[in-house]
């Protein structure tokens, strides 16, 4: 579904990604692991068109998207849940969700039924539909951010560290939801620092280190390879202990 070939990205002059190649197969959960500064978020930003790559190609559903604008890419069915959630704090939950459906030009009834789906997925949001997003807890904002991305009816959902700054209980429930979304037919590309957690729900994994893919394989086999993980991700201390 998504194919990245020899991607090179730089901020101003400092290269961040040297040569990244990866592939996301339809229907799977693929995770991209790496320590701070490995270039995970940069990869996602390049995919969704927020940064223009220096060279290399990004293909989505057989079409090259590396020279397209972000709004065109969203229209093709690629949704991005940005790092730090980035909900619209001064707008209500409902308004946030409506913006999620912005590119679709869908009818009111379609938007309404999709919003119902989002509320079914996250019943918590239904309770708070008229609350300003900025007044909600971090976990609720993360739910909203995911629900908002799902409103664009994506083929591929990209999540940038959905576990960031959340309590372990909330993280578990968010991960369950991601699995649920995938089982309902949406392909997922997940970025995580928490390797153990991400490997537990994903099918395939890539490990990124200093702008390069250093390891890839089935999640299970990578999870067993503790020594390698420790070398690239700084060991289990970052993972959860429970």
């Amino acid at each position: 579904m998504l194919k990245i070939n020899d991607l090179v990205v730089a901020y101003e002059v400092a290269p961040v990604l040297h040569s990244v190649s990866l592939e996301v197969q339809a229907g799977k959960i693929v995770t991209l692991l790496g320590a701070n500064g490995a270039g995970k978020s940069t990869t996602l930003k390049a995919i969704s068109g927020l940064i223009k790559p220096l060279s290399g190609s990004i293909e989505f559903c057989g079409e090259v998207i590396s020279n397209k604008r972000p709004d065109e890419i969203v229209k093709m069915g690629l949704a991005h849940v940005p790092e730090g959630r980035l909900v619209f704090p001064g707008l209500t939950v409902t308004e946030n969700l409506k913006i999620g459906a912005y590119t679709r030009k869908a009818s009111r009834s379609e938007v309404k039924s999709d919003m119902q789906k989002a509320f079914d997925l996250f019943p918590r949001l239904a309770e708070r539909c008229n609350q300003l997003a900025g007044t909600m807890s971090g976990g609720e904002q993360q739910m909203l951010s995911i629900a908002r991305a799902m409103m664009s009816n994506p083929k591929l959902l990209m999540l940038d560290e959905p576990s960031l700054g959340l309590a372990p209980v909330i993280i578990d429930s968010i991960m369950d939801k991601i699995r649920e979304i995938n089982e309902a037919g949406t392909t997922v590309l997940l970025i995580e620092q928490n390797a153990e957690l991400a490997l537990s729900i994903s099918h395939y994994a890539y490990v990124l280190s200093v702008g390069e893919v250093v390891l890839s394989g089935d999640s299970e086999s990578i999870a067993e390879d503790k020594a390698v993980l420790e070398a690239y991700l700084g060991g289990e201390s970052e993972g959860r202990t429970d």
Binding site: S48, P70, D71, H80, L86, V87, F88, I99, R148
Partner: peptide
């Protein structure tokens, strides 16, 4: 209006949502 308000709230998020 929704697009304009999203711009006010968070430009990056608006862009990611597909607002030109």
């Amino acid at each position: 209006g929704l697009a304009l308000k999203s711009l006010r709230e968070d430009e990056v998020a608006a862009e990611v949502m597909g607002v030109d």
